[in-house]
């Protein structure tokens, strides 16, 4: 007699994905990696400039983790289409990058940087938490690894939101200003990527709408406790193909060494 347990979906491998699933997964992996790379670069702009040494170190740690996550996503992509992480990172221009605009906004002041990192960390932690159930085994493995690191980011930036929100009149004002600017950009984090419906149906990636609902509950409660007001209004209607001018300058700086020495083996 066969087992009466509920039928479980077979774990997928790179060989059992359909071509359309593969294309959609490459798009999603690149989107996840691009968000991490661009945010990590913005964070790295504080190296040597953060308000105190401990925070300089903390933000460098966070940036380093995010680059580690990007590398894991891009290693999964390489297994699907052979494209290499360094090539994708340093030799694509702003028209080819697929990050959300939230992460490319210039770094602003400390409140702006901490709030953005907090909003993003909450997204990433919850997205990864859902991604652990992926039917594509290599992706579930990456999620299980990354989610353990992400909890430290979220603890850290949640505390900064509280500290600045409940701190002085000026720290609260700066944080509220940052929230007024950034809130409309957050909905872009939860837009499905091209062809993603098929991935969701196959259990390969989570439904971004479900992640959005969890994120909204967590973040609104915390912002409220921290004395902030979430602005009303709809999110910006950008797609991942649309960028601000800021990305051009960011990539010019980030890619300059690699492009200057394109045949270097180590740098």
């Amino acid at each position: 007699m066969t087992s009466p347990s509920a039928p479980s979906r077979p774990a997928l491998t790179a060989d059992t994905l359909t071509d359309t699933q593969k294309r959609a997964l490459i798009t999603r992996l690149q989107a996840l990696a691009d968000d991490e790379i661009i945010l990590a670069h913005r964070d790295s702009e504080w190296t040597g400039h953060a308000p105190i040494l401990e925070e300089d170190i903390a933000l460098a740690n966070i940036a380093q983790d995010e680059i580690g996550h990007a590398l894991m996503y891009l290693t999964l992509r390489e297994q699907l289409d052979g494209q290499q992480a360094d090539q994708l990172t340093f030799f694509r221009g702003p028209r080819e990058y697929t990050n959300v605009q939230l992460v490319e906004l210039p770094k602003g002041d400390w409140a702006f940087t901490m709030l953005r990192q907090y909003l993003y960390d909450a997204f990433e932690a919850l997205y990864l938490d859902a991604l652990r159930a992926s039917t594509y085994a290599p992706l579930a493995e990456v999620a299980n690894k990354a989610v353990r690191e992400e909890k430290f980011h979220l603890q850290h930036t949640a505390l900064w939101v509280e500290r600045l929100g409940l701190g002085t009149e000026e720290s609260r004002r700066r944080l509220q200003d940052a929230l007024n600017t950034q809130w409309a950009y957050t909905s872009q984090l939860f837009q499905p990527t091209d062809g993603e419906a098929e991935l969701i149906a196959a259990g390969i990636t989570p439904d971004p709408a479900a992640v959005h609902a969890r994120w909204d509950g967590l973040v609104r409660a915390h912002l409220d406790r921290s004395g902030l007001q979430v602005p009303a209004g709809d999110g910006h209607p950008f797609t991942r193909a649309q960028h601000s001018e800021a990305l051009l300058y960011l990539l010019t700086e980030m890619q300059s060494t690699a492009r200057e020495h394109a045949d270097a083996q180590v740098w």
Partner: peptide, 13 residues
């Protein structure tokens, strides 16, 4: 805890 990140990724202060 004086800093939630330390000199290496695995430690805090």
């Amino acid at each position: 805890m004086t800093a939630s990140f330390g000199p290496t990724l695995c430690k805090r202060l």
